[in-house]
Design a protein around this nucleic acid. Structure first.
Lengths: 235, 235
DNA sequence: TCGTTGAAGATTTTCAAAAATATCGAAGGT
DNA sequence: ACCTTCGATATTTTTGAAAATCTTCAACGA
């Protein structure tokens, strides 16, 4: 195929297809509970049937798609209960990872954290002007910040769990961004408190403020609909 | 193939192959860091190359094998650091799951927990007489007990994380059993304390005692070698 | 000694098709 | 009118073989 030989993007076809599917699921282009028929996917993305099966089993392991034996693959459903579960787990896992990271804190980690926070602040400014256009940039910056928080914890499995939860929450975060349900001011303030507490080596305050980041719309008087499931995207 | 049509064991070829590999990795028949060449696996287990690729990507998602792009698959390495990481994470995850399970405690969950504890006690007795022969039975009973502890937590993701960590620790547990490094008396006593605390609704005591179960040889004066990596199994 | 070349081996990917299973609507009986 | 059974269609699952790509490693020349 035409992109053969380019290994700078993704090293294998399977991973490339998985990355494309991941992105389209995150943006809601492939809405939750959509059946993923491999023939349709092939006409849309290219690639062979087996490569798609492998990519889909990969994503099934990540929780982004669900596979029922003999009944193919579906985009994982995204209910309000799922969002609550993800947020609750992220609060605990990232708080624990931050605690452990602080136990081994050094200058390079602090520097990386400050840099990630700065990049995220810039991304927030960008996304305020052009939500749809800068969504991917903003999302990756946020993911980088949270990854950096736990990157110094010296637990590969905690880092893996954090990555997985962040990946699962992407859909919800991006949907909330597009629908204007993200309170950038509150989040930025909370991230500032987290960073200040980290630099002050205040473990309790840092983990507490980080957990607050995952509270649904804390401080705002808006209540959530019962099922903030992701609205079906385009296509 | 000859077993076609039998859906009582495993619904698809890929899952059957994955289950076989899982078992052989757990028992050390496939030692850590062993290269998994698909052609060799085919002559050993049967099945086609594609089915094996899919099964291996499945196990890679579970952390039991590692896949390097363009360089095939290897059985995941099992170092002392891995064991420490797994134990540390299990202590936290299962304590959290037990805490949440207790928040929704009801009679049926308690009954299931008592039953699982009883089955595990019987399995411990059996494995005391015939370690190698009853190893699988004992391991499954232990897995059932720990799964039951968190089964009432109402967090699908926490349950998934617990399952994954339990799966990853199987190799170490079975190796320790065969080598006689399991203190059945201490573990049984600790499980008794956990169960008593659960029935008394003492969250703090229950989670504390459960975490103790994952402390490396607590109370015993033995120190661990630097790398209690799994000894290469037979074959 | 170091870097390059080239062949052998292994992995990855694709094409093509058969076997197994599920889905759906119509026919028939209650 | 409602439920079950049956068959046709669609989809998934599995297999085999071959082409394309990558890795490894020894031989070669500067």
């Amino acid at each position: 195929m035409f992109w053969r030989g380019k290994q700078e993007t993704e090293s294998s076809v399977v991973r490339l297809l998985a990355a494309q599917l991941r992105r389209d699921i995150a943006f809601g282009i492939l809405a939750p509970d959509t059946r993923l028929k491999i023939d349709d996917l092939r006409t849309r993305y290219g690639g062979s049937a087996h490569s798609f099966r492998e990519a889909l089993t990969l994503l099934a392991g990540e929780g982004l798609v669900e596979s029922q034996a003999q009944r193919g693959f579906r985009v994982a459903s995204a209910t309000g209960a799922d969002l609550e579960d993800i947020q609750r787990m992220r609060a605990r896992i990232e708080a624990l990872g931050l605690e452990w990271s602080l136990a081994h804190a050094d200058a390079t980690w602090e520097a990386g954290l400050v840099a990630a926070r700065h990049a995220l602040s810039r991304a927030v400014e960008a996304v305020r002007g052009d939500a749809a256009g800068e969504a991917l940039f903003w999302d990756e910056a946020a993911a980088g910040f949270h990854a950096m928080l736990v990157s110094n914890c010296r637990s590969p499995r905690l880092i893996a769990f954090q990555e997985r939860l962040a990946l699962e929450s992407r859909r919800f975060r991006l949907a909330a961004l597009i629908e204007g349900r993200v309170d950038h001011d509150a989040e930025e303030a909370m991230r500032g408190r987290v960073l200040d507490a980290v630099l002050a080596r205040d473990v309790g305050a840092a983990t507490a403020h980080l957990s607050q980041l995952f509270q649904p719309a804390a401080g705002a008087g808006e209540d959530r609909p019962q099922k903030p499931a992701i609205t079906g995207g385009p296509s």
